[in-house]
Amino acid sequence: MSRPRTYQTEAIIIKKIKLGEADRILTLYTPILGKIQAVAKGIRRPKSKLAGHLELLTHSTVSFARGRNLDTIIGSQTIDSFLPLKSDLSLTAYALYTTELINQFTAEYIENRPLFQLLLETLHQLCLTDNRELLLRHFELHLFKEIGYRPQLRECVVCRQPLQPVLNYFSSDTGGMLCPDCRLTQTIVYPLSVDALKVLRWLQDNDFITISRLKIEPKLSHELERVSRNYIKYLLEREVKSVAWLDSLKQSTQLI
């Protein structure tokens, strides 16, 4: 049986690049098809019917027509445009960071419904919560889990003994914690305080609604950010581009 010539799915637009006079190639994250790319024709013209429904960080229902190479988008209707997110400078930066991670960590046509739900939920929560850093850490930890890089935070990855409440170490190479005795087995390790480890475990085991009540000190938040970023950098073997912008924004808003 031949595949139907058109199909429809819900999707979050995570990346766009220009193509030709007025077209774009969009990267979309969908629940069933995973990450897909498609051409949106004429989308850069002011009278484009699709443009507003296919902007970055928009959750839409999208219809496609199969093409020889890339599929073409033939229709789109917004489900949620995340307006609060787009009207706030730092919120947009946070959201773009999450979509860039999704884009970097996924391959095309690999179904991952929980990951789609995680992204959607995170974008929703960004609009609602003030606890943005913690939400980002929650997103990262659950992203690791969904793509098969869940860090081991309960026991030492070398000696398999449960971790004691002392200063332990995180190793990106082994994807987990090392106890003080085993830390020398790895060349690059990051010290992780007892509190930070507790927060990471708590984030790993709970949904964000439960976690959102948690208030953490800036110093602890910074420690968590550093460990998480190092792990991401190790896994991707490159920098996440939107981090630079996120950091420069954080700095400039602190100054004023």
Binding site: A51, E55, L56, L89, A93, S252
Partner: peptide
Amino acid sequence: TNLEGEQTALYLNHLISP
């Protein structure tokens, strides 16, 4: 009026409003 243009406008607002 796309996301990049909006970001730029918001950022300039942040710099110019003072």
